[in-house]
Simulated assay, not measured.
Amino acid sequence: MTEHIGFVGAGNMASAIVNGLLGRNVCPAAQIAVYDHHHAHYGRFEDQGVHGVETVQQLVEFADIIFLSVKPQNYDEVLQNIKPFADGKIIVSIAAGISSAFIKKRLGESAKIVLAMPNTPLLLGEGATALCQCAPLTDAEYAIVKAIFAAGGVVQDLPEEQMTAVISVSGSSPAYVYLFAKAVIEEAVEQGIEAAVAKALICQTLIGSAKMLTDSGKEPEELIQMVSSKGGTTIAALNALYAHGFEQAIQDGMRHCTKRAEELGK
C-alpha cells in the first residue's frame, strides 16, 4: 500500500487498526501518523515506528486516508478543524451514529467517506467490521479502506441505513459476551470451581462454539438441539434461561443500543 494513513485520536481503536496494518505488513510504519490532544498517548505508537504529529493540520496534510477515531460528541469540532485541509482526502468515520450527511454538511458534498463500525477484538486481529461506501468514493478507494480493516479480521459491506443497527450486532456485542462469561465464572466459583479453571473452560467453549457457528453449516437452533437431550442437563439450564427471558433481554439490550446510537448521531 502506497497511501499515507492518519488517525485523529490515538485511542484503543486507532491502536488496533495500526497493529493490523503493521502485523500483516499492509504498509510500513513510516506511512502512518497519529494526532491527539494528549501527546502522552503517542508512546505506544512511536514504539512501533509510527509518528505522532503536533497539529491536526500536519496530520491531514500528511495523510491520504484519515481515520476519525474520536467520540461522536467531538465530531463537530474535529470536522471544523480538518475542513480547510481535507479536500480529496478519504475520511473514515468509526463513531457510533454519525451519518455521511452529518459529515458532508461540515466538509462539503464532495467529501469521500467510509462509515465503519469495528469492534475491540480488532486488537487481536479477530475483529468484525461493518463498512459502508458513500458516494462519491470510488470502488478502488473503498477497496483500499476495506483492505485496512481486513488486516484485523472479518469485514462485511452494509448499506448506510443499517450502519446504526449493526452497532448492536457486532460493535457493542463483545460486552454482552463478556457479561455472559462473567456470570458463568462467578457461578462456577459458587459451585467450588477455581476462577482460573472456569475462565479457561468458558473461553475455549466460546471459541469452539463460534467455530461451530461459522464452520458447521448449521443454524443456531440446530446447534442448540445438538447439545440438548430430552430430560438432560442442558435442557434444564435452557428452561431456566427461557424462564428469565434470556433471549428477550438480549434483544431489548440491542434495541437500547441502537436507540442510543441514533441519539448520538443527532
Rank of each mutant, 00 (worst) to 15 (best):
K266S: 13
E247N: 06
L206I: 15
V18G: 02
Y142W: 03
V34R: 08
V166N: 09
G6K: 05
G253H: 11
V166E: 06
P220I: 01
S228F: 01
T55R: 05
E161L: 03
A151G: 12
V8P: 03
L59R: 08
V70N: 06
C27K: 12
E161K: 12
E194H: 12
V53C: 10
G208T: 06
A240G: 00
I91V: 13
P174H: 10
A261K: 04
A261S: 14
V53W: 07
H39W: 02
C203W: 12
A116F: 07
I148L: 15
A249Y: 05
L123N: 04
E263A: 04
F85P: 02
Q31A: 08
E3W: 08
K199W: 00
Y178R: 00
D36R: 02
Q48F: 00
Q251V: 05
I235A: 03
Q133W: 02
S229H: 01
G9A: 02
H38L: 14
Q58I: 01
T233V: 12
A10D: 08
K104W: 09
G6R: 09
I185Y: 04
T164C: 12
A140G: 00
R260Y: 03
H38N: 15
H41T: 10
M212F: 06
I207N: 05
C257T: 14
S229I: 04
M1T: 04
K266L: 09
L137E: 09
A195L: 08
E219K: 13
K71Q: 11
I94Q: 05
D76Q: 15
D252P: 00
S209Y: 13
F102G: 07
K71N: 10
K83R: 15
E194D: 14
Q31T: 06
L22P: 01
D139S: 12
K89P: 07
